[in-house]
């Protein structure tokens, strides 16, 4: 479960402080499929980064499965991101000099010894197989289509089977058909028990989510009702 209490974040401007988030109170239960929608600059990505432990410069408290992220050291927070969170980005963020399998196995390099996979490339290949990319394990990202790249990125996010997937515009760089396939993938993962939190502009994505949270000017204007 993710609980945000009175979370605010401000950027210092020359004349006055500008709030990216303002006193956000939000609770997301385990297993939810949540879409966060809002206009550009409304604070969606900032909210996602704070929930994922990528941004520590905020006020208020963020609890993930009972852990207050503000209390964690840099090492603890790194481990939290490594083991408990999977990130999926709009621009995939794959490393071109690595193969698809090596990209997927990358989180293993940062894992603490006890959590590390003994054969990370095999685990990576299994993850790619579940996403229909068993024939692409040795390919470099340059040789993959946009949809394939995003599925590689999803496989990487799933490498340690975290409970939560944080996705920042995952279909933003994809065509309609491919985007639809990615949405289906998220739906399937949600059915398997993953908590999915997606930032999106796209109606088709928010339609797939079971709950839609709307954010404007850093304020939560609609916490959304859970649809079944």
């Amino acid at each position: 479960m993710i609980t945000l209490t009175q979370v605010s974040k401000k950027y210092q401007q020359s004349t006055q402080d500008e709030f990216a988030l303002r006193e956000v109170d939000l609770t997301i239960e385990a297993g939810e499929f949540v879409a966060i929608v809002g206009t550009s600059g409304s604070g969606k990505t900032t909210l996602l980064n704070i929930m994922g432990g990528l941004d520590r410069d905020y006020s208020g408290s963020v609890l993930v499965d009972g852990k207050n992220l503000g209390d964690l050291s840099d090492q603890e927070l790194a481990r939290f991101r490594n083991q408990s969170i999977g990130f999926v980005f709009q621009h995939f963020n794959l490393l071109d000099h690595l193969t698809a399998a090596e990209n997927v196995a990358l989180p293993n390099a940062f894992a603490p010894p006890k959590d590390r996979k003994s054969n990370p490339l095999e685990t990576a290949k299994d993850a790619l197989k579940t996403l229909g990319l068993e024939s692409k394990t040795g390919e470099n990202p340059n040789n993959l289509s946009g949809g394939q790249k995003q599925r590689v990125a999803i496989a990487r996010a799933l490498f340690f089977q975290p409970k939560i997937l944080l996705c920042d515009e995952p279909t933003g760089s994809l065509d309609t058909k491919t985007g639809h396939q990615i949405i289906e993938t998220f739906e399937r993962l949600n059915h398997e028990g993953y908590t999915i939190i997606i930032i999106t502009h796209e109606r088709r994505v928010s339609d797939a989510a079971k709950r839609v949270i709307q954010i404007e000017d850093g304020r939560l204007v609609d916490s959304g009702a859970v649809t079944t």
Binding site: G52, L54, A78, R79, F87, L106, P107, F110, R156
Partner: peptide, 13 residues
């Protein structure tokens, strides 16, 4: 890329 390393579990160290 370095930001990605951090997102995937890399610490400052």
């Amino acid at each position: 890329e370095l930001g990605l390393f951090r997102a995937l579990g890399g610490s400052k160290r």
